[in-house]
Every structure is written in structure tokens, then in C-alpha cells.
């Protein structure tokens, strides 16, 4: 790891100003991706602004019809939260299956969302629930947030403070994990709410995406059977040593059916 200047912020405003004074600074959330990248010298920031001491970024609350999760809330905190289990059990299930126990004790929802790894779990939940990314200065709908592989709508120095999830009627998440890394080879999040049905896929393409054909089929009948004839084209999907694009396309169908079954509580 290369040297860097270290700053520990006590507030969102302080973190923002510390980062704006740096040549090439990065916010440090849980560090479970960033520190690994720095050790490999894939990332070499001039400055690190540690968000670990900012109390206002932690915590989970229900606000009307929304579940609001602070950006520095860890995966295990989401997985163990009674509020999450009651409002969106699929989200607790998703968080409980990220990485391993020790990674989940450090890794945060804000860090995961800002990183937008193409195989991360949380982007599927945000897009599949129509969540809103709350930053210090504005609110960004998930539909506009994930713009490409490791790319987001965040401006340089813009800090995520919370994620706001509208509470759906029902939702489910199923993933086929890579057996070594536990990242999603394919993960599918489905939800049904007053505003319609959403199906979001992670792991299969360069960035999380929705499947309009599946959404239409589930809108007419929310059951695994209604997905039987819907296929996902393999054209733009990832091919690597773990799985071909055609296999991933197949898995999207299988995981979508499992996610619907889970949403139905079967």
C-alpha cells in the first residue's frame, strides 16, 4: 500500500471539506473493497477521509412508507435489524449473505453502493425496490444512479449519507454465489408495490439492470410460473472463467423464479 494522508471526520460537513482539500482523496467507509484495492496498488489515493467516527451516518429508521438506512450501517447491522426484518425481509436476507461474517462486520451499505461493483448485492436491492440514494446535497433515484461498471452518478467529493427504500408489498432476492468469492454470479431482486413490479439483476452484466419483460409478466400475474416463457438475451452479459454469458442468461431466469417464490413466502 502506498502512503497517504489520513483524516478522521466527525461530521458529514467536515468529511466533505477534508476531501475537497485533497489532490486525489477517497472516503473510507468499511474499507472491505478499498483497502484490498490499495494493498494491490490498484488504488493509490493521496488522502483518506475516514467516515468511521461520524455518528449521523449510522442507523436504521422507518420514516412513513420508507426504510432509511444510514450510509455507514454495516451489512450485519442490516441483516440483524428488527426494523428491516419487518419492513423488507428480503433486504435483511440479502445483507446476511454478503461476503462472510467478518466482512459484514466492517462493510457498509454506502460503501457498497458508491463502489457499484458489477457483482455486488446491494445495487440489485436499490434498483429492484426503486430506492433513493441520499447524498449531502441531493436525492438520486436508483434508476439514475448506477451508470456503468463501477460508475455512478456521484460527483467527485459527493458523499452518500443514507439509502431510502420504499417499503414494498413483497420482495425477494435470490443469488447464485461464486463459490469462492461469494460475489453474485447472478443475483435477482424482485419487488411488488403500489407503483408496480421491479426486477433487477446484478452479476450478469457490466452493471445492475432491470428486465422489463419479466416485470410485465409479473405484473399480470405475480408467480414463478408467469416467468416460464420469458428469456433474457445473452448478448450484453458477462463472460469470464466462472460462467459464459449464455449460462448467466439462464441463471437470471432461475434466480428470478426463486426470488418470486421467496417473495410469496413459499
Amino acid at each position: 500500500m502506498y502512503e497517504f494522508e489520513y483524516h478522521r471526520a466527525k461530521s458529514v460537513d467536515e468529511a466533505t471539506s477534508q476531501l475537497s482539500g485533497a489532490d486525489d482523496g477517497r472516503f473510507l467507509a468499511g474499507g472491505q473493497t478499498l483497502l484490498a484495492a490499495m494493498k494491490l496498488r490498484l488504488a493509490a489515493p493521496s488522502d483518506i477521509v475516514d467516515l468511521g467516527g461520524i455518528a449521523e451516518l449510522r442507523g436504521i429508521r422507518v420514516d412513513g412508507g420508507n426504510l432509511v438506512v444510514g450510509a455507514m450501517t454495516t451489512h450485519n447491522e442490516v441483516a440483524a435489524s428488527k426494523d428491516v426484518a419487518k419492513a423488507i425481509p428480503a433486504l435483511a436476507h440479502l445483507a446476511s449473505d454478503i461476503g462472510d461474517r467478518m466482512v459484514r462486520n466492517m462493510g457498509t451499505i454506502g460503501g457498497s453502493v458508491a463502489n457499484n461493483d458489477p457483482a455486488a448485492d446491494y445495487p440489485a436491492a436499490l434498483l429492484g425496490l426503486g430506492a433513493t440514494v441520499v447524498t449531502r446535497d441531493r436525492r438520486i433515484p436508483a434508476d439514475d444512479f448506477f451508470t456503468g461498471m463501477y460508475e455512478t452518478a456521484l460527483q467527485p467529493g459527493e458523499l452518500i449519507t443514507a439509502i431510502s427504500f420504499p417499503i414494498p408489498k413483497r420482495a425477494g432476492y435470490a443469488k447464485f454465489p461464486n463459490p469462492a468469492s461469494r460475489y453474485a454470479l447472478v443475483g435477482v431482486f424482485v419487488s411488488e408495490s403500489g407503483s408496480g413490479v421491479r426486477v433487477a439483476v446484478t452479476g450478469a452484466g457490466p452493471s445492475v439492470f432491470r428486465v422489463p419483460d419479466m416485470e410485465a409478466a409479473l405484473k399480470s400475474s405475480f408467480s414463478p410460473e408467469s416467468l416460464a416463457k420469458v428469456t433474457v438475451p445473452a448478448d450484453d452479459l458477462n463472460t469470464d472463467m466462472h460462467a459464459s454469458a449464455a449460462y448467466r442468461a439462464h441463471l437470471v431466469g432461475v434466480m428470478a423464479k426463486r426470488a418470486v417464490t421467496q417473495a410469496l413466502g413459499k
Binding site: Y6, R8, L28, G31, Q32, L35, A36, I48, D50, G52, M102, V103, N105, M106
Partner: peptide, 10 residues
């Protein structure tokens, strides 16, 4: 936690 993936300052 995995102490190889945490800064001492954290």
C-alpha cells in the same frame, strides 16, 4: 473482523 483488511487507525 479480518485484521489484514482493516487499518490500525480504524
Amino acid at each position: 473482523v479480518k485484521s489484514c483488511n482493516v487499518l490500525a487507525l480504524q
